[in-house]
Design a binder for these strands. Structure first.
Lengths: 251, 251
DNA sequence: CATTTGAGTGAACGGTGTTTACTTTCGCGG
DNA sequence: CCGCGAAAGTAAACACCGTTCACTCAAATG
């Protein structure tokens, strides 16, 4: 029956996983530009042409790898968030932001691939691009949720410098969110992305070697805008700050 | 005598310029990964091997192109700064920041090359890497100068969230600058870089289509920290803000 | 004028993505 | 059990790429 058919489907899925694993190994070893179908096939003891039974083209493989990595870093952030018992949304945001940075610095080539400029030939493969957009949006979404909670609790700052009207006109269809939350999210996300990307891409190696003070300053500057939670858990920032370079106990 | 030798040198220099021009044309047309020695040679009616009389390798050519682009964007910012009669350092900073963004969006492939992750094989070519670092530092330097002036005028904010002691330990040798100025510069540069890179690399195409409000908000948030100049020219920010999308009259 | 230097060529090596035609393997229905 | 058909894999080719090496040829130098 379809049992044996399932077996071959499983085999097929396994080789596809093997392909993606080898692609990631190349990415880790030699950077995004070194991902090569021929090298993957060589490593698998196959011909390069055989890989086209599993992947329509190299770019499609890279795009799929990108969405996988987006999901991986999102799961890491969610795990760090859930490992922390404190329900304060601000605390959750800080924990997730630190985990995002930790993951990126622990997986520099992968982070470069997903946070750096897109490879050429991305405009094709529309379906997978939608998936990628979706994965990227989901990563952002886990940061939106706590901000929405903060807004509902009346703890979101005013942002007098953002032109809310013009910004409202520049948002895509899914404008379910209050514009104030969107504004706070975008400005915060940009700052988080900035310090991370600058570090990843070596944009300030000429200016500073240890960028963690700058990252923590960005976090503290954000946290200072948010009034502390009403009932318990004051001094949220200081509590959640790691004492030394190594991680406390999460992941 | 050396007259004819000079002529040869001139010819050599001209072909080298032609090589770099064609490399840039490829960059503009098809992105950083599309720069190819063979295509340049084809366009010049030559053999690829002949290019090795002028360039030691492809990576070296790309690195040289990077330093040229760094200088070009720096000159553009300096020109915009000098075209503005207002001597207020804050005003100069805003003008330069806007010109930086304008240049980057008007030259997306070039900006992607110099602000994105470095291409592999950059660790070799140490001399040219030093030049590149130097060019990058010079670009940052033109933003440091006005900040130093602001500091001398006592107009720099406090930055209570930056761990100055730890940051001081993470700075390279050229620590000529007061640590407060360095801190303000680095945090501001990171934010400027963040909004620019996010825009360049399409990191928030899923969240917003028009990012100028976010850029202007970042600028306004920075300017709000700086008290206005003592004598003339109040409302520096509003004056220098362009009314519509096109540029006022600079460059 | 002879010679040395530099520019340029042609061929080759090893690498890449991708396509096409062909062969082999293997599960499934009769 | 056996043949069929689909799926998996191969070999060869095409068009690129960076890089090297031996070689030619013209031009500047003494």
């Amino acid at each position: 029956m379809s049992d044996t058919s399932h077996r071959r489907e499983r085999l097929r899925e396994r080789t596809l996983i093997e392909i993606k694993d080898l692609a990631r190994a190349q990415l880790v070893a030699s950077g995004p530009a070194a991902i090569s179908l021929r090298a993957i096939a060589r490593e698998m003891g196959m011909t390069a042409a055989a890989l086209y039974r599993y992947v329509p083209a190299l770019d499609a493989l890279v795009i799929e790898l990108c969405t996988d990595l987006h999901n991986e870093v999102r799961l890491a952030c969610e795990a760090a968030r859930d490992a922390d018992p404190d329900p304060d949304p601000l605390r959750r945001l800080l924990v997730m932001a630190r985990e995002l940075r930790r993951w990126a610095l622990a997986h520099r080539p992968e982070a470069t691939l997903i946070f750096g400029p897109p490879l050429p030939g991305v405009e094709q493969f529309h379906q997978q691009c939608d998936d990628l957009q979706c994965a990227g949006a989901q990563l952002g979404q886990i940061f939106v949720e706590p901000m929405l909670e903060l807004w509902q609790a009346g703890r979101l700052p005013q942002l007098p410098h953002v032109d809310l009207d013009r910004l409202a006109g520049a948002l895509p269809a899914h404008g379910e969110l209050p514009i104030e939350v969107t504004a706070v999210f975008l400005t915060s996300w940009i700052r988080l992305y900035g310090v991370l990307a600058a570090e990843l891409f070596g944009q300030l190696t000429w200016a500073a070697t240890d960028t963690e003070p700058l990252f923590e300053a960005e976090l503290a500057s954000f946290a200072a805008q948010i009034p502390p939670a009403a009932s318990p858990s004051a001094a949220t920032l200081e509590e959640s700050r790691p004492q030394a370079s190594p991680e406390p106990a999460s992941l």
